[in-house]
Amino acid sequence: MSKMTYAFPQSLSETRTHYCAGCGHGIVHKLIAQVLDELNIREKTLLVAPVGCSVLAYKYLNVDGLEAAHGRAPAVATGLKRVQKDKIVLSYQGDGDLLAIGAGETIHAANRGEDITVIFLNNAIYGMTGGQMAPTTMEGQKTLTSPQGRDIADVGSAMRACELIDTLEAPYYIERCSVHDVKNVNRTKNAIKRAIKYQVEGRGYSFVEILSMCPTNWGLDPVKSAKWIEEDMVPYYPLKKFRDKGEEA
């Protein structure tokens, strides 16, 4: 008898993707779906979708979901979790959402140790609006609103979310991963699984940052995009586990 080695995750919808070729969102959606299947929590997972490319995340995940205003996903997730205490609440956000317009909500939800999981996709640019500079845009990186490249003397350096959140007492789990190659995709899945498992156990706030490709707005093909992450982003955004109170214990 043959053994099933790979199945389409139950938590993933069979919907045609709206994401661009080489985009990392689809990979991350699939990883989340696999984790929800493996933890058998699809029926109790509530997804808060942000404003940005992943505004349509609910179309791809077979779970209950709720929209949030731009940047407010952690606050919406807070309100939802405090009503649906036994459910798993995921806040899925991009870089403009999480670090620019929603910086306040991000920091305060983390600081309260809200019992939610924030999955942060960092592609160093605003995707949905067509490629503007994000808080995470790299020094010298050209975007629609930094046509000469990001000038850090003028607009400051790229912000590092994990390092910021790591200054707070309450968060339980903080890790930065990437989806630019297979090895790192596997690592990312493990990080997402650990973060969500901690919420299942009621441990508090967990945060996973994922470096991800945006070939369309970077003006690179998918292969070069993956390479750009490895050579340009990773040195600035080190891939590591910043905190794991579960391991410390």
């Binding site: 509530l46 808060v48 709720l66 949030a68 205003a69 407010r72 606050a75 919406v76 997730a77 807070t78 309100g79 939802l80 979790k81 405090r82 009503v83 649906q84 306040g104 909500e105 920091i107 305060h108």
Partner: peptide, 24 residues
């Protein structure tokens, strides 16, 4: 019940939205 002082009015109304969607 649950009382929470939010970090801003923007956050507060979004928390209200989340709680309302949860049925409270």
């Amino acid at each position: 019940g649950t009382f929470l002082q939010a970090e801003s009015e923007l956050a507060a109304i979004s928390m209200v939205m989340g709680a309302s969607a949860g049925g409270a």
